[in-house]
Amino acid sequence: MIVISDVDYFIGPVKILDGVNLELPKGGISALIGPNGAGKSTLLSLIARLMPLQAGTITVDDLTVGACPNNTLARRLAILPQASDAAPLLTVRELVGFGRYPYHKGRPTPDDHAKVEDALEAFGLVPFADRRLDTLSGGQRQRAQVAMTYAQDTGYILLDEPLNNLDIAASRSLMRVLRELAAAHDRTIVIVLHDINYAAAYADLIVAMKGGKIVAKGTPDEIVTEDILKEVFDTDPKVHRIDGKVMIEV
């Protein structure tokens, strides 16, 4: 379980997070939604100790973020940041191999190699294993990044807007893989999503944020309603229920 207590965060004079208290359960997929600038990515980065906490505490199971050794947390929690800069000049296998670094510190054992092959297999990357990342499509590259995170073998996986720049096929296949990881491999997935339909379709829990605060938290059924969407996003799309699934009109 990830427990966030009284977390504030400022960038200069601007308050990005405002007294956030949140518990994210172990297991399943939790999705963070909210308008641009709501503080979703900041919250995710704070959980993953990419930025130092200014106020409040965050614990991941028994580990206190910021107080426990960096390397211990690296075996418990992995983050896939927003895809930004150019791909490193590595083959898919080399990239996935770096996911094992917290365990081998530069001296990989046969066990590490086996875990890498396992990850390549699980994400259907075997045919591309020796291709360089810069020769792959955006979707394949994203899949390789997720495979690296998978190889890190952590109970918690954090993903910051992983569907950016992915077409519908790649998006659906990635979300299915995450579903599978949560269901069959007992991983806890925390994901920042912009497309509420994806959150509604794949997440077990949705957390809505606005202006640095948690506005609502619940199952897709409870959260994806016209009232809450209006409150969070200041826009009023129609919400349909089709075959027991919620869907919003865009």
């Binding site: 100790r49 960096n70 983050i79 940041p81 770096f98 917290p102």
Partner: peptide, 23 residues
């Protein structure tokens, strides 16, 4: 050369380094 992996990870940026538990 003993720190080759560490330099390669640093080359992927601060975020990746922190994520992999590197100082």
């Amino acid at each position: 050369y003993l720190a080759a992996d560490q330099f390669a990870i640093v080359g992927m940026g601060r975020t990746v380094s922190t994520n992999l538990g590197l100082n």
